[in-house]
Simulated scan of single mutants.
Amino acid sequence: MWEYAASSFRLVAGLSPSLDVLAARLRLNIERGWEDLGAVDAAMFRIQKIDFALSRLEGSPRPDVFVWVGRANADVDVALGILLDALGIGEEALTFRGDIETGFVDLRSEPQA
Rank of each mutant, 00 (worst) to 15 (best):
A13V: 04
R10G: 00
V21E: 10
D85C: 06
N29E: 11
W34E: 12
I100F: 13
R56F: 15
S8G: 05
A13I: 06
V21A: 07
L11S: 05
L22C: 07
P61V: 15
D99T: 10
P17I: 13
L87H: 08
L28Q: 03
V105C: 01
D41W: 15
D77G: 14
A113Q: 08
L22T: 08
S55E: 04
N29I: 10
R25G: 03
K49V: 04
D20P: 01
G98W: 09
A72H: 13
P17Q: 07
I82F: 03
D99Y: 09
L22V: 08
A42E: 04
D75W: 07
L15N: 01
A42I: 14
G38P: 04
V65W: 05
F52Q: 01
E35R: 14
R10P: 00
R108H: 04
E110P: 00
E101Y: 12
R46D: 03
L84F: 14
A74Q: 10
V12R: 12
R10F: 04
S16M: 07
T102V: 12
V67T: 06
I82K: 09
L83D: 02
A72D: 09
D99H: 10
D20E: 11
N73Y: 09
F96L: 05
R10M: 12
L80A: 08
S60Y: 12
I100D: 06
R56S: 13
D106I: 08
V12M: 04
R62L: 13
L28R: 06
S55F: 04
M1V: 15
E58K: 15
D36E: 13
L37S: 11
V21G: 01
V12I: 12
I82A: 02
Y4V: 13
R71G: 02
G88H: 08
V12K: 03
R56W: 13
